[in-house]
Design a protein around this nucleic acid. Sequence first.
DNA 1: GTCTATAAGGAGATAGAC
DNA 2: GTCTATCTCCTTATAGAC
Lengths: 188, 188
Amino acid sequence: MSRKNSVNERILGTASRLFYRQGFHATGINQIIAEADIAIGSLYKHYKSKNDLLCHYLEQQAKTYFANLEVYLQDEKKPLLKILKLIDYRIKLQDGAECLGCHFIKINAEMGRKDKRVEQLISRHKQHQRDFIERIIDEIGETQNLSMDKETLTNIVFLTIEGAVVSSSIHGNTDDLKSVKKFIEQIF
Amino acid sequence: MSRKNSVNERILGTASRLFYRQGFHATGINQIIAEADIAIGSLYKHYKSKNDLLCHYLEQQAKTYFANLEVYLQDEKKPLLKILKLIDYRIKLQDGAECLGCHFIKINAEMGRKDKRVEQLISRHKQHQRDFIERIIDEIGETQNLSMDKETLTNIVFLTIEGAVVSSSIHGNTDDLKSVKKFIEQIF
DNA sequence: GTCTATAAGGAGATAGAC
DNA sequence: GTCTATCTCCTTATAGAC
């Protein structure tokens, strides 16, 4: 990461890239400081441990995810198209990331129940993603009849996307995300 | 793992448990040989590397998954009930594993594209799981009209289950798997 | 199969000088 | 902020004796 960025930006940017591409445990502190081109003392001034760095990485990913999503959807007024565009957003993210999947699902898979703070950051982000879908489905419900109860519909839209992102990371393509899009067009 | 079992059984059994509970990279060779109560020489006589052990772990998990599934479904003749019982099977697996999720999804998340052999074992197992669902949906299609085309239906059943298993591992419960069951009862 | 020794390197983290 | 040195421990893997 370029030296034009602040030290903290370089740490977080490099750590994010390496945690995502190599995994958390497979990424060493030494590699992070080498590629970020910072001193080890600087890292431990900003973060009190590697786990602490992991938490800030997750917090930043959550912020970025929703900030970019809002921009991506800002001109879309029709709720049904919003939900289809949400999937386009996930497709775009995967296409731009070698289909490596969701940051949070990856860390969850690697960390299990080892760290309460990490666990909470992940489950909170996933809840926010689900809430986001629920709000769009609320909007849809205001303009037309829903084919099933709102809660089930929300869960199924959320879960098919989750499954398709995981499948994307396994097979290295976005076919299943496109399949989900087709499915969602049919159930509304 | 008890010394009544063969050395190889003890290695694979212990490695499986530790890879699943702690993750692959967080589990050391030394911990495996200590808990399996075998010598390090024995491990490297059976497996040529830690990566090789990982592959045998995945192969064994794939076999066990389908063998136990066949037993679980053997007395069920009605195809629609088969698909609901498949979800019960996944619920039972998660309940018996502290809701840690799918072995293959976890290893995929941790390994990314680092090992071609691992990659292939994972994508093949996932394809088999999808094929299994497709065959049941074929059977359903013989007795009734399907609400949408077979391919989309297969994908959505597969992907909702995948998503629900991941969600199970994030939130530590099987609520979403139960929600998927409710959903599947509605679309057939 | 067991044991011990060892190679060769990496891990996370701390301390002190500049 | 930088640098280097260091601590303690762990990692995968190999070799040889029993």
